[in-house]
């Protein structure tokens, strides 16, 4: 564990808490892409298949359980209690391409051809693009609630900090995995436009609006 990874994990934790807070406080999931949330649920379930077979630490297990449970809870609540508060007509990104693309990528680029490793790799590639339906929806509506922008910033910062963590781990431990590094870079690049608007507007107290 190093400071980059710890802060990254805490940002990830914070992002989910901010999202839950947004939904509860505004009693609405408006502006949230259900498809992105569904993709994150698939990401965590496929990545943490080793939950019962591979012990790392209490911290690691607790975080895994939280990420699976919270993403499942959000998907469930968006389908049930908050079903009428968000508009599926705005959430039109074709996730079949992301699900299929990640499958192809994990079949071509992986380190071991085993059940757990293929699903782990699939989750890494899928996570890199899971935010696209959300960004696509925001580019269509041209704006986002401030709390939603904070949620997205924390979520984007988490993977960006993991990239820094991987560089740090390579320098200090010689630990290197190029698949998550590359996927993390892709995800951070996808966030670039969002980060720009977040820093230039939301951090200065203005509303998140696309130019």
């Amino acid at each position: 564990m190093n400071v980059f990874r710890l802060v990254a994990d805490l940002m990830h934790l914070a992002s989910i808490l901010i999202l839950l807070l947004k939904i509860r406080k505004t009693r609405s999931a408006a502006g949230i892409s259900f498809k992105s949330q569904l993709l994150y649920l698939i990401v965590f379930v496929t990545r943490y298949l080793d939950l019962f077979t591979h012990w790392v630490s209490l911290y690691n297990t607790a975080m895994k359980v939280f990420f699976i449970a919270s993403s499942g809870y959000i998907v469930y609540q968006m389908q049930r209690r908050y079903r009428a508060t968000w508009d599926p007509a705005l959430d039109t990104f074709r996730i079949e391409f992301l699900l299929g693309g990640a499958a192809v990528m994990s079949l071509i680029f992986h380190t071991k051809f085993t059940f757990l490793e293929l699903f782990w790799t699939y989750s890494i590639w899928l996570e890199a693009v899971a935010i696209l339906p959300q960004l696509f929806q925001m580019s269509r509506t041209g704006e986002a609630e401030t709390i939603t922008a904070h949620y997205l910033f924390a979520l984007g910062a988490y993977r960006g900090l993991y990239v820094v963590n991987w560089i740090y781990r390579y320098a200090t431990e010689g630990y290197w995995e190029w698949i998550p590094f590359l996927a993390g870079m892709v995800q951070t690049v996808l966030y670039a436009d969002f980060f720009y608007v977040y820093f230039s507007r939301v951090m200065r107290g203005k509303k998140f609006e696309l130019p």
């Binding site: 990874r5 080793d50 077979t53 895994k64 380190t111 071991k112 059940f115 757990l116 490793e117």
Partner: peptide
Amino acid sequence: AVEGATHDEL
């Protein structure tokens, strides 16, 4: 060891 499960990150 469990197959492929060497990942210690989240």
